[in-house]
Design a protein around this nucleic acid. Structure first.
Lengths: 190, 190
DNA sequence: TTGCCCATGTAATGCGTTACATGATTCG
DNA sequence: CGAATCATGTAACGCATTACATGGGCAA
């Protein structure tokens, strides 16, 4: 898997400039594949050299010109070849899990600080979930009347929603576990 | 976040050679942080130079000598500093989601091939879940009688279990969605 | 005797991250 | 007047991946 294929999917869904692609990678596509604008410009150049994409200069009023890229037939063929190759297992990187196991080697004050961080992290994921649900209501108001492309976009979005819900439930579990380790001491309990 | 911290946690839980660390990163720690032996040896060298870990040569009968590494007080201090720093948002990379959205640009035969791949991928995750559940029964037979370290290990494992269950449910959703796109044609239905 | 496990590395390449750079327009 | 948005890049660095290398012991 490489960034190229994610870009091809995005350009097939809708042609875009490098800048617009970067914004998509901050929003919708960024749900399952991240990239910065620096990476995107580098890869676009390579893809154009390989004739996977073609660009067209577009002048704009009151804004800088931009170059709008589209996937070529060769690019689409390259995407299909990749689509039919086996799915690689995911490389997992979950920093919070490392910190939680590491908390065994910190003191109660450190674990309390971690719990605070987990709460902040939880709020982020709650906001992400709210954003997904709002996007779902906006983009898929009638889930029974979707074409193929929309159905596939919707099932991927449902995956994001399921992921965020799972994360929130697990973070509650984590917070309860941290609380049980260092129960709040009560002063002057009669 | 860096590999250093994951290694520190692992060495604090139990000192190990580079080889043994690499195996842990294939098994238990690999659930939430992956690394190859090449990375590990490189990082161990750097950590030893920084005095975060100390190594002791251990001779073995019938096996090559090995160097068993332990975290030093300085290493533990470095870990605690990192534990108390803010958690970075995760960088998401989910190849399968890209392929599913890309399937809109392939034909029914390609989508059928993708469905087959999804089934294989699903079987992998089912095996992973079974492994987690077996590990849970083995390592945490009595979840009410755990010390701090074990409680934290257990809650991380529960996160892995919740993740795998979520993935399996979502993959069923994906398979149903793919089936609905290209319903199997029936010949000679009376 | 072929291949796997233990044990530790080097080297090349490429991808991702961070910092830096430019320049116009629009909004408060 | 300063900040944000649009738009496109270059450069340096470091981490991750892949391939290659070595060498003894052990089991089918």
């Amino acid at each position: 898997m490489s960034l190229e294929h994610a870009i091809l999917v995005s350009l097939l869904e809708q042609p875009a400039s490098g800048y617009e692609l970067a914004r998509r990678f901050d929003r919708s596509i960024g749900r399952f594949w991240t990239a910065t604008h620096q990476q995107i410009y580098r890869v676009l150049k390579r893809m154009a050299a390989d004739d996977w994409i073609a660009g067209e200069e577009v002048g704009q009023e009151g804004l800088p010109d931009k170059k709008v890229w589209s996937a070529t037939p060769a690019g689409r063929a390259a995407l299909v070849t990749w689509l039919r190759a086996p799915v690689q297992p995911e490389a997992v990187r979950h920093e919070l899990a490392v910190k939680i196991r590491g908390a065994a080697f910190d003191d109660p004050a450190g674990r309390a600080a971690l719990a605070t961080e987990v709460e902040r992290y939880r709020a982020d994921h709650e906001a992400t979930l709210a954003g997904y649900l709002a996007g779902e209501r906006r983009d898929f108001p009638d889930p029974d009347a979707l074409d193929a492309r929309e159905s596939l976009q919707h099932v991927v979005l449902r995956g994001g929603i399921a992921y965020e819900r799972m994360v929130l439930a697990w973070l509650d579990d984590v917070l309860a576990t941290l609380r049980d380790l260092d129960p709040p001491t009560r002063k002057a309990t009669p």
